Simulated assay, not measured.
Amino acid sequence: MANTFSLILVIVTLVTGIIWALEKFVWAKKRQQKLDEILAQTKELDPSLQRQVLPQPWWVENSVSIFPVIALVLIVRSFIFEPFQIPSGSMKPTLLIGDFILVEKFAYGLKDPVTHTQFLAIGKPKRGDIAVFRYPPDPSVDYIKRVVGLPGDIVRYSPDKRICIQPKGATECKIVPQSNRVRSDLKSNVAPMEQLDEQLGQVKHHILINPWRMDNPMNYKPRPGVNEWVVPEGHYFMMGDNRDNSADSRYWGFVPEANLVGKAVAIWVSFEFNRSPDSVLPSWIPTGVRLNRIGQIH
Rank of each mutant, 00 (worst) to 15 (best):
A2I: 12
F5S: 09
L7D: 04
L7E: 01
I8W: 13
V10A: 08
V10M: 11
I11K: 00
L14E: 03
L14F: 14
V15P: 01
V15A: 04
T16C: 06
G17P: 05
G17F: 01
I18H: 02
I19D: 06
E23I: 01
W27D: 02
A28N: 10
Q33H: 11
D36V: 02
I38D: 12
L39C: 02
E44D: 15
L45D: 06
L49S: 12
L54C: 02
W58C: 02
I66P: 01
F67W: 13
L72S: 14
V73D: 08
I75G: 05
V76P: 07
V76K: 02
F84C: 08
P87F: 07
S88G: 06
L96K: 10
I97F: 03
D99R: 04
I101W: 00
V103P: 02
V114N: 04
V114W: 08
H116W: 13
Q118S: 13
I122Y: 02
K124L: 11
V132E: 09
Y135I: 06
D138P: 06
K145N: 12
V148M: 09
G149E: 09
V155N: 07
V155K: 09
R162A: 14
I165A: 03
Q166A: 11
P167G: 06
P167L: 03
K168F: 12
K168E: 15
E172T: 13
P177D: 13
S179V: 08
R181W: 11
V182M: 07
R183P: 01
L186G: 06
L186A: 13
L186S: 12
K187V: 14
L196C: 10
E198S: 13
L200I: 13
L200D: 14
V203K: 14
K204R: 15
H205S: 15
I207R: 12
I209C: 04
W212Q: 15
W212K: 15
M214C: 03
D215K: 12
P217A: 08
M218W: 08
P222K: 09
V226G: 04
E228D: 11
E228F: 05
E233T: 07
H235Q: 14
R243C: 09
N245W: 09
S249L: 01
R250A: 03
Y251E: 10
F254C: 00
E257R: 07
A258Q: 14
L260P: 00
I267E: 00
W268Y: 15
E272V: 05
F273R: 07
S279R: 03
V280Y: 08
I285E: 01
P286I: 05
V289G: 04
V289K: 05
V289L: 14
L291C: 05
N292P: 00
R293I: 03
R293Q: 12
G295I: 02
H298C: 00
